[in-house]
Design a binder for these strands. Sequence first.
DNA 1: GCGACAG
DNA 2: ATCTTGTCGC
Length: 259
Amino acid sequence: MELLLRQIPEGMFSTYDAIAIALGDIIARDAVREFAGIKAGGKVIPGIEDGIMLFDKFETEFPLKKLRNEQIMMSKRVVTEDDFEKIERIAGMDVAYRGNTAYGAYVEMDMKGNVIEKNTETMEVNFPYIPTYFSYRELPVLEKLLEGRHPDIVMVNGSGIAHPRHFGMASHLGVLHSLPVIGITKRLLCGEVRGKYIYMGKEKVGAVYGKKPIYISPGHKISVDSSVAISKELCRYRIPEPLMQAHVLATETKNENNL
DNA sequence: GCGACAG
DNA sequence: ATCTTGTCGC
């Protein structure tokens, strides 16, 4: 992004849309708005205006297009059937932020809800939040939290295969570590709800659960129905307990460090 | 064609 | 996700 902003000649302007397109996906427009508002010194404006010199001939390799292709390639390795021996240790991971500093938390428990192990990590992140590219921001933190740990299954706050390229963060994590992962979100990224399930066309990619619903989609090595069964069993409140506790721990960690 | 879009 | 006060309800 910095490289693109630097290309805008003196006296000319560019727009959120033009830069998002140069990045490789118009969906990045909001991230451009946040970033450019501070960094571009007024050279980036919301839209085309009368009497300005618009610059949109960026030299670019469309980086998001490469990430998109990577997602499509890796999505072929996703397994959406149960592929595990036992489920005794379930880990939940969540991340809280202050600016570019990420505070990650890991909470591992048994199926009764007893905590077995906890871990926290702090690191800098640079990739912005861009819908459908979420894992490129948060996955490094999750991987660091997971180092040296061996849960039977993991739950994360993000989509699994309920993703435009069937490769949300839960799938990304699962494939990279060959680990069963369940994706849980409070809002639906993609797909449509019919009854208790989420579909993308004819394909069932997840399920809805709860009065104030959460959206559950398999990331890797687990089926839709098993994802729901396990989530359900660990739901004391709206969000399954491992994620709930990881959220609390991440927030506490953020507030301890500085403030 | 247009807008919306996990955390 | 984060920025934030009070406030409705069990």
